[in-house]
């Protein structure tokens, strides 16, 4: 328990048109977790529960060893939070915001703030309303990072940025997060952003956690196998195959626990293996979502 920064156990939250169901999530200290889901999948709701901004209907939310939302004041002292929807005071400049945050957090590190200011290329005297969206996000990150929180929760920090600004923020974030031992929960619907930064990746869809592993496990275990069948009869699932797409004698299968034995099994059935392809995180995410939705639909029909 002490080694976990975040632990959600069987957490449920009901809304009129959306339910977060039986969410179990653990993030060990020192890890960077990418939290991936489509829009409306439940990422922000989960993060709000973690932040103690919302009360779960049932289940336990423990952050930095303390129960949330009961201990939110103490926990938020060691927790940095930034979200896409968050805005600073437009009429004030960055120096004003820094002074305010500095007065709240004794852990504020002036020299690190200066370093970030330089790295993010921000002007202390510039009013926030004159910032571009990218600058606004960088300013928010500066305010969060320079107080050296034990746990960093970033809710879609790059959403809404143009590709250039997104890459800029991601590059800086990747550099900063590599610099030090931090525990980070980073939500996004953009798998490329998450792949770049995260050690662990959790997928959420329609209010349920559908998969959670470290990045290497995903990349090592998932394969797409291109096959040429001896006939047009439907291909039967073999081993850990979660998806089969077939058109005539050509089939493409996805395995989420790839084992070379599966290739031998196909060869024994006179199936020609045309290619075994690695999958990127986006493909893995999409396959995971499709599988989860099929399973849920079947479950609902039964």
């Amino acid at each position: 328990m002490q080694d976990l920064a975040i632990q959600l156990q069987n957490v449920n939250k009901h809304f009129s048109y959306f339910d977060l169901e039986n969410v179990d999530l653990t993030l060990p200290k020192g890890q960077i977790m990418g939290f991936v889901g489509a829009n409306g999948a439940g990422k922000s709701t989960t993060i709000r529960l973690i932040m103690g901004l919302m009360q779960a209907d049932s289940g336990d939310v423990t952050v930095l060893g303390q129960s949330m939302p009961k201990m939110q004041t103490q926990v938020k002292q060691d927790l940095g939070y930034s979200s896409e929807e968050m805005k600073l005071y437009g009429a004030q400049n960055l120096a004003w915001h820094i002074n305010f945050i500095k007065s709240v957090y004794p852990s504020w590190d002036d020299s690190y703030a200066k370093e970030l200011l330089h790295r993010f290329d921000l002007n202390l005297e510039q009013k926030v309303k004159q910032f571009s969206k990218g600058q606004h996000i960088k300013a928010q990150l500066l305010l969060v990072l320079a107080r050296k929180p034990k746990l960093l929760v970033l809710d879609e920090p790059t959403t809404g940025l143009d590709p250039v600004a997104r890459q800029e923020v991601n590059n800086e974030l990747a550099l900063i997060l590599r610099d030090e031992e931090r525990t980070v929960l980073f939500s996004s619907h953009n798998t490329a952003d998450v792949e770049k930064i995260s050690d662990q990746i959790t997928f959420i869809d329609r209010g349920r956690i559908i998969d959670s592993h470290d990045k290497e496990t995903y990349l090592d275990s998932w394969r797409r196998i291109q096959l040429e069948l001896p006939s047009e009869l439907p291909l039967q699932p073999t081993g850990n195959v979660i998806q089969i797409e077939q058109e005539g004698r050509i089939a493409s299968v996805i395995s989420n626990k790839f084992d070379p034995l599966i290739l031998e099994a196909y060869q024994q059935q006179n199936i020609k293996i045309n290619a075994v392809e690695n999958m990127n995180l986006e493909e893995i995410f999409l396959a995971n979502v499709n599988r989860s939705r099929i399973v849920r639909t079947k479950g609902a029909q039964q």
């Binding site: 901004l53 927790l79 940095g80 805005k87 600073l88 005071y89």
Partner: peptide, 17 residues
């Protein structure tokens, strides 16, 4: 409305504060 409330919610405070 202008979402500065989100910025404040992350501070070490409770709703009553």
């Amino acid at each position: 409305k202008e979402s500065q409330f989100s910025f404040l919610m992350g501070l070490p405070i409770k709703p009553i504060d």
